[in-house]
Write a protein that binds this DNA or RNA. Structure first.
Lengths: 104, 104
DNA sequence: ACCTCATATCAAAAAGATTTGATGTATGGT
DNA sequence: ACCATACATCAAATCTTTTTGATATGAGGT
């Protein structure tokens, strides 16, 4: 249970930063290497590297090494996991009680 | 565009804190007032109030005043919005290019 | 072997989020 | 009117995340 919360926090934290959202938006048009991503962003090299790590750790993005370059792309399995988690966290249980009994 | 990112950050930030995730879990079993939520949590009164504000601001939770009590519940429209946003942020564009041209 | 380029890691500073305790506000009971 | 209860708000302290600049690593090219 608490494990699940740690994982949820890791995934959704990836989505809480404007720089990372901008990166995701870039990756929507296909795989990109770090240098290309950086060109369109106001981040230093080490800053981008940090954000890419957060994105990869969340599972939403995967990386692929090719020579000197690291290529990043959206992970569809990461997306599915995140969607399923979000749904699980915010869907009421079937036997949910409509009103709180506390004021009666 | 940047507006959308601010909103996304607000929504997903709500899901990044273990206390708030515990609150959501409680609300899955139905509407609850603050005092009931607090009973099962290690938070002070003002701390809970802060977290409930974050959750309400995200749209994932709605509140209803009844006399002295504030009742909180999961918002299905908030859930739908969050799901749609998550999907939009992490789905590749149809014409996405499989490989980055940077190393060629 | 040496140099350069692409990226990762580290540590300190800066910015942001959360906790805590005190105080404010609104409601209902007497 | 006064008091108690249920929350909300505020400000200071604390904790976490992000930024920044310096240094490290690892792959090619010469």
């Amino acid at each position: 249970m608490s494990d699940k919360r740690v994982e949820a926090a890791r995934i959704f934290k990836a989505l809480c930063d404007p720089t990372r959202l901008a990166v995701l938006d870039q990756l929507r048009s296909g795989e990109k290497c770090a240098c290309v991503i950086q060109e369109e962003l106001f981040v230093g090299q080490s800053g981008l590297s940090y954000h890419m790590k957060v994105l990869c750790d969340s599972g939403l993005v995967t990386s692929r090494q090719e020579g000197k370059w690291t290529h990043y792309s959206l992970s569809s399995s990461g997306q599915e996991k995140a969607m399923a988690l979000l749904e699980a966290l915010t869907t009421p249980e079937p036997e949910a009680i409509p009103n709180c009994a506390c004021s009666s």
